[in-house]
């Protein structure tokens, strides 16, 4: 469990995935990728963790939200593990296509 804040970058312990926190809830959350806890960019990956199969791997540039919509992550590097919070898979945030305006 960790208290996250906007702008923080996290990396997967079991694959290449990296994310940036866009929005974070006030309470501590447990973000996992491929079943293992995600860690800070300078932290050591969780030792002994193995990639858990299943779920959709995150796609570059896509945003992922938890069920309440309080946590939002941006995939800044894709990998194989899927994103989850407290064991529940995060959902891709629907794109709102807008015409290029500038």
């Amino acid at each position: 469990m960790a208290q996250l804040k906007a702008g923080t970058r996290l990396k997967s312990s079991v694959c290449a995935t990296e994310v940036m926190v866009i929005a974070a809830p006030d309470n501590e959350v447990a973000v996992t990728c491929g079943g293992a806890a995600m860690v800070g960019m300078k932290d050591d990956p969780i030792s002994g963790a193995t990639l858990e199969a299943g779920g959709e791997p995150p796609k570059m540039g896509k945003r992922y939200v938890n069920e309440e919509g309080s946590l939002e992550l941006l995939c800044t590097k894709p990998g194989e593990g899927s994103l989850a919070v407290g064991g529940t898979a995060m959902a891709i945030k629907g794109a709102k296509p807008l015409p290029a305006s500038d």
Partner: peptide, 16 residues
């Protein structure tokens, strides 16, 4: 600020 510009881009532009 960084948060204003990054929010604007993430909210209005599809990556790639």
């Amino acid at each position: 600020r960084q948060k204003h510009l990054v929010s604007y881009i993430l909210g209005s532009v599809e990556f790639a």
